[in-house]
Amino acid sequence: MTLQSGPQRSRLDPEPVPRRDLLGLGALWASASAMLLAVVGMLRLPKAAVLASPSKKFRVTLPETLAVGEAFVPPGRAVAFYRDTEGVYAVSTICTHLGCVVKPNAEGFECPCHGSRFTHDGTVAKGPAPRPLPWLKITGKENQFVVDEGSTVPQGTKVNA
């Protein structure tokens, strides 16, 4: 038997692949995109929808005497309280760079991980932090306050007490 149509081919020539086999190509691309979509769909599982959300509000009792510029950090919490003549305010001590807990010092705050420095009001003084430390919403009076780590207030919002 010989090939009737087209030029004579040698046995060693590559077999021609039909490039305009629409159904074949369609099936190929359909299976490829189905698998790709399946992989994307599988990412839906590890992307958690329900997150553990312990209460972000807690009570704080400030010490009787808190000098101007002196920070009070409730034990085990990432928030620093300051009291001055205008009132009381709370600054988050979670570094806006990569999330380390900054430590209050005489000038403000310093970060142990990558060396960011902040002033008492949270403004970046030095280092890689991209944003100032946020001020947290507090309510209360005298020495009793409730702080909400979930909501921030504009810098300069102080509570009279």
Binding site: P112, H114, P128
Partner: peptide, 29 residues
Amino acid sequence: NPAVPENPAKAPWYFLGLQELVAFSAFMG
């Protein structure tokens, strides 16, 4: 201890070059 980071808090040695870079900019480094 989630309240107090190590000071200094250092990554394993082969990432300390990267840590030096992220100390300039988190995204770039």
